[in-house]
């Protein structure tokens, strides 16, 4: 059986690969959406945090001999703590200003962080292998899927679901949402809103770091890995609707699939297709697919 001249099996394989990329997009755009939704900050340093997560995994392996699973647990905490520090020292001061200031501040931060890594480690990047337990591949009949890629999909879907659940369905989540709607009232109720916001930023950053660790065995750990992916992720957030949690997850996965298909039919356009969709969505639904019109 063939679809537009492409054998069904090849098509299924490409869709599955699209899903793997989509889960990275989902996880990164989720962090961005959480930060934008609750802090109103367009966090351009997200890509740099993703890169820091991957580098931390490499450093733990290289200098401490600690493997993948340790990194997966430790990198989000360490990078998240770094995010908390950044929020306290820098980002906090631009909340009251126009979005543009937050964007410029975080963009500058990203350049500084990338510059430091480039200076210390060079641009070619560092090797990082697939963890022992996830080596090898499974024959799915229509394609050979490396086990590690399957794990990436499972892990990121799990994390995305948990985040969505916590923010939309639990008491802490309702505090968070209320805190952004009306911080003064929340503070009057005795909730420490600034601390909550600080931790939220840390959490968003931790998500990026975790995606970085997940990506390390697949993509070369290099200082530029964040800036290569961040623009696409921003497009995902815009398409999904700025600040929409569920929107960013679903859009991330969907765009991964669309990009995957483009790679089969017209590979030259695979870097552009996301932006074409973004332009169309902005024309037809300026608030994004899942965004609420304000």
């Amino acid at each position: 059986m063939e679809i537009f001249g492409i054998p069904l099996q090849a098509m299924l394989g490409q869709l599955l690969l699209g899903l793997v990329n989509g889960s990275f997009y989902a996880m990164l755009s989720l962090g961005l959406a959480v930060i934008f939704g609750l802090l109103n900050i367009i966090n351009f340093s997200h890509g740099a945090m993703y890169m820091m997560g991957a580098y931390l995994a490499w450093m733990m392996m290289e200098y401490l001999g600690l493997g993948y699973w340790w990194s997966l647990a430790a990198a989000p905490i360490v990078v998240g703590a770094f995010g908390v520090l950044i929020e306290r020292v820098l980002i906090r001061h631009v909340y009251k200003l126009d979005h543009l200031y937050g964007l410029l501040l975080t963009f500058g931060l990203a350049l500084v962080i990338e510059g430091v890594y480039r200076d210390c480690f060079g641009v070619s990047g560092q090797p990082y292998g697939v963890p022992e337990a996830l080596r090898g591949a499974t024959n799915l009949g229509f394609m050979i899927l490396p086990n590690y890629r399957a794990w990436v999909v499972v892990a990121s879907l799990l994390v995305c679901f948990l985040t969505w659940f916590v923010i939309e369905r639990t008491r802490i989540g309702s505090y968070l949402r209320a805190g952004t709607e009306n911080p003064r009232l929340m503070q009057a109720f005795g909730v420490n809103v600034p601390r909550m916001v600080m931790l939220t930023y840390g959490f968003g950053v931790a998500l990026a770091a975790m995606a970085g660790v997940l990506a390390a065995p697949i993509i070369q750990v290099s200082p530029l890995m964040g800036s290569n992916v961040i623009i696409v992720v921003f497009a995902v957030v815009v398409i999904g609707g700025m600040g929409s949690i569920l929107g960013s997850i679903l859009t991330g996965l969907a765009l991964g699939l669309i990009e995957g298909l483009t790679r089969v039919f017209y590979p030259e356009a695979s870097a552009t297709v996301v932006f074409v969709i973004m332009a169309l969505v902005l024309l037809l639904r300026p608030a994004g697919l899942f965004g609420r019109e304000s």
Binding site: L17, N228, V264
Partner: peptide, 9 residues
Amino acid sequence: PLNASDFSS
């Protein structure tokens, strides 16, 4: 495309 991060496809 230049700087395509994923080459599996």
